[in-house]
Design a protein around this nucleic acid. Structure first.
Lengths: 356, 356
DNA sequence: CATGATTTGTTCAACTCCTGTACTTACTCG
DNA sequence: CGAGTAAGTACAGGAGTTGAACAAATCATG
């Protein structure tokens, strides 16, 4: 809520900062010798030696052997991320599936479990219990100590309080997901964070994405638009995720894009979600079918989207027109967004990635 | 441009951090004893003593004398901001005036000089020379060492490069204001920063503003809308100014608010500036006068605004209608902004402050 | 093949800074 | 006037970085 009070700097904070600096250097720019790390970070060789020792003891870095000789002078001993270092576990709780992912230090996949299940029908309690069980299984099967757990949720998330504030598509409101999971999965004091899936998708793009700037540098400033039933955007500026005051930034689903248009669930008129959301596309693409029935329908909106794509590829004008229309509205919203946050790149994810 | 490389933490950085922590405590929360500072910051009494000694030597803090006794125990010696500490100098280069402001550590005004002059007629070179001269005078007359200089500019500013990228109302483009001022005013290596006036207005609101949250706490998250000929917004989230990738965040003047509407200088249609900017208000309020003539007109748009306000106060429907109309469009733009950055408060400045 | 140049990584004394404890100082309360 | 309490200081000790000296490993060269 309020900006947190700055902490005093102790000797240990200093050490922690420099450990992170050295580790980050290897993580971001690949394996390097101690001397190279010293040159890149500005630390002295002596400090780097000491820091690297600590990191090796903690199984975060490992010696990869001597550098390939070619230049004069003693060859360095190359350090890389430890393959048997601590792992991270991610839990995705989404509308129609539940999944865990276990990754190593370099982000490589170690294990994944996905359970396709439409969670809309179940009470909150039962969903949390199932999620906790899946998470517990991932933790038990982890091949190394788990450093922390991240949870992606489909809605507005209060990251500080660990609350899922609002998930319209699940029908949830103010669910203390973090506390519940910690208790039911027996996490002890393991670091555990929850966040909005749009934000996390943006971070994934930042850390692991293949997109590049025209100059070939990795993107560090962009908007990642992830459309599903709702429309969200994760905003990354200078390598940092931008959240609003309460962590609800980037909710572009309810940007006003057309002064006419249907009334939205949120009460306003002309919201993007009503103009370019998944259901709006389906509605526009298949007006002859009428609006989809309420409640669970066995084909699901996703299946409907595949249908639209197929019909568009075979040249049916209604489907093409619907996609073009949605793209136009999305463009209006994104241009608003770009004006405000001044970023240079937009990455389309979710249904828009498939439509593009 | 690119996210800057993290710096190594040295012993000195640690000291600097803690000095800032102690100083900031006194600056933010008012005078306090060493013991109170220690309790508030989490530092030990011994550290605070040492840090305070350094700050007193640097004329940043000063002993205000013993605390008013009332509680048992030895009374503390209260520390406050030094009145003869270093001063800061601000330079405002705006369309129709040039001003310098000299302030003490606590932000109290020490000196101010304002020269009303319409700068639109003059070549860039001459304007910079005049600004440098005014700045030089302020520096020479400063009653204490000058810690740094801040420059407010009416346009898009690249703060890293010290460039005024674009100032449509001055007709400037890519002017290296920082370098020019440093050279012409003989600033040596004095810290010097340039920024957008909207951003600086927002920071001023953050640091010195009287606005409070409903709970009575100072605002730390808000949007400061400053409308003049153009419309800009400074965005402050959790006590920090948010800039876009290149420092051009908050340019809401060209948010698309109406899908119809006149074409804007920027090439798009429906920009806020065309719907609710100063000239749009004047145009709407006085349709019988026709659009104002191009170029400089001796009354100036500001004078026109006073007229509109006066006519509205005397109940003339045309003026009222114009203001109401502009307010509506501004509301649409602000609601877009709030969706994206998720802040809870909006502060109206510039012409909107007067219209409200 | 031996020597010197060059670069890497470690060791060690010195320095800076924070911390905890003990101590002095200064005031209130009874 | 003495006990109690809180503020500020002094000092030893620990953690961390620095810089220089040194040992190790390789290439270049005669």
């Amino acid at each position: 809520m309020s900006p947190r009070r700055p902490q005093p700097a102790r000797q240990a904070s200093l050490r922690a900062h420099n450990l992170a600096l050295v580790f980050g250097e290897v993580a971001d720019r690949g394996p390097a010798s101690r001397a190279a790390i010293a040159a890149a970070t500005g630390l002295t060789k002596a400090s780097v030696s000491s820091l690297v020792d600590t990191l090796i003891d903690g199984h975060l870095l490992t010696e990869l052997g001597p550098a390939p000789q070619g230049r004069i002078g003693r060859p360095g001993s190359v350090l890389g991320l430890s393959p048997d270092g601590p792992v991270g576990v991610g839990l995705e709780l989404n509308v129609d599936y539940l999944a865990t992912t276990t990754v190593g230090l370099s982000g490589h996949l170690l294990a994944r479990e996905l359970i396709a299940v439409d969670l809309r029908g179940y009470p909150v309690d039962e969903v949390i219990a199932r999620a906790a069980a899946v998470l517990r299984r991932a933790l038990d099967q982890a091949p190394a100590p788990v450093a922390g757990v991240g949870v992606a949720l489909p809605g507005l998330v209060d990251t500080d309080g660990g609350l899922l504030r609002l998930a319209p598509n699940l029908g949830w409101r103010d669910v203390p997901v973090l506390a519940e999971l910690r208790a039911r999965a027996g996490l002890g004091d393991l670091p555990l964070r929850v966040d909005n899936e749009a934000n996390l998708a943006a971070l994934a793009e930042l850390w692991f994405g293949e997109h590049r700037t025209p100059e070939g540098a990795p993107l560090t400033t962009f908007v990642h638009v992830s459309g599903e039933v709702g429309v969200g955007a994760g905003i990354v500026v200078r390598g940092e995720l931008f959240r609003g005051a309460r962590g609800f930034g980037g909710e572009i689903g309810h940007l006003p894009v057309r002064t006419d248009g249907p009334r939205c669930r949120c009460g306003a008129v002309g919201c993007l979600e009503q103009a370019a959301g998944l259901e709006a596309i389906l509605r526009a693409a298949a007006p002859e079918h009428g609006p989809p029935p309420d409640g669970v329908h066995d084909s699901g909106p996703e299946a409907g989207l595949a249908g639209v794509i197929h019909r568009a590829e075979t040249g049916q004008p209604g489907a093409l027109q619907a996609i073009r229309q949605a793209g136009t509205w999305l463009g209006v919203a994104i241009s608003s967004l770009l004006n405000v946050v001044d970023v240079g790149a937009v990455v389309l994810g979710g249904i828009y990635g498939r439509l593009a």
